[in-house]
């Protein structure tokens, strides 16, 4: 086995060389700055490299999509972010965007077109599903064979955009036991972080939402709680810590599960 360093291609560099990658990989603020979540985008970049996909990231030119600002009521800030991002993306003639973040996915796909930002937007679970279906992505390893995985639907992929199948299809490829939570797919309970909640204290109540959801996930008896959203990852990881299950239960993004299974 040969160990190779990955140089993540940056759009500005490629553009200077007159090269145009097929995909823009939108890393997102969590991918860039959240210590736990950085590992998810690193895993995904490994998969992209493994599959030989032509892609690039915006690097230091990337900026918040404005999703949080919009949902927290700051439309002014959202639209400024949107217009600046679109100017940048259109400048690079971006056609296809892949992102691991369902919030970015939703904003690009549904909200940027109103500001003249029209792209084919792909969530990483959809991308992985397509790679499986075309036969590009094959997994032989059975490192999760003894494990039970439960999948937590992110609101902005599920209810917001109706994508329940792609992440499940990817997990089906991983030899392992799968178990659904009581509330799943369109009935899935939110992790508690959307709509700006990630960045503020929760209002007074009897319980934190992330604890309610983590308890439900633990009830399945799964060893792995699979997520596909940076917010969900923070909340579920916190929930596992709160329930003192760090040793027994792991929280992985689907990209990590695939990358671990590929043993790359």
């Amino acid at each position: 086995m040969e160990k190779q360093k990955i140089d993540v291609p940056v759009m500005a560099d490629l553009f200077a060389k007159n090269e145009k990658p097929e995909y823009l990989f939108w890393v997102g603020s969590a991918g860039a700055f959240d210590d736990r979540y950085k590992n998810v985008v690193r895993a995904f970049v490994k998969i992209l490299t493994h599959l030989g996909i032509s892609y690039a990231v915006l690097g230091i030119e990337e900026s918040s999509t404005g999703d949080v600002a919009r949902r927290a009521g700051n439309e002014m800030l959202f639209q400024m972010q949107a217009m600046m991002n679109i100017e940048l993306l259109n400048g690079y003639e971006v056609k296809k965007i892949i992102t691991c973040d369902p919030h970015a996915y939703n904003t690009f796909k549904n909200e940027y077109p109103q500001f003249n930002g029209n792209y084919k937007v792909i969530h990483h679970t959809q991308f992985l599903r397509d790679q499986i279906e075309t036969g590009n992505l094959k997994i032989n390893s059975a490192i999760f064979a003894e494990k039970t995985i439960t999948y937590h639907d992110p609101c902005y992929l599920g209810r917001a955009n109706g994508e329940y199948a792609a992440p499940r299809k990817v997990l089906d490829l991983i030899p392992s036991e799968k178990k659904e939570m009581k509330r799943n797919k369109s009935k899935a309970l939110c992790c508690g972080a959307g709509g700006g909640q990630m960045f503020k204290e929760a209002e007074k109540g009897d319980k934190e939402i992330f604890i309610e959801r983590t308890e439900e996930a633990l009830e399945t008896g799964a060893d792995i709680i699979a997520t596909a959203c940076p917010y969900c990852m923070t909340m579920i990881t916190d929930g596992i810590k709160y329930k003192d299950k760090v040793e027994e239960v792991k929280n992985y993004d689907i990209a990590e599960i695939v990358s671990l299974s590929l043993e790359i």
């Binding site: 040969e2 160990k3 360093k5 985008v41 690193r42 790359i264």
Partner: peptide, 8 residues
């Protein structure tokens, strides 16, 4: 985040 990513 993109520093020191290695692929096997």
């Amino acid at each position: 985040w993109a520093k020191d990513i290695y692929i096997h």
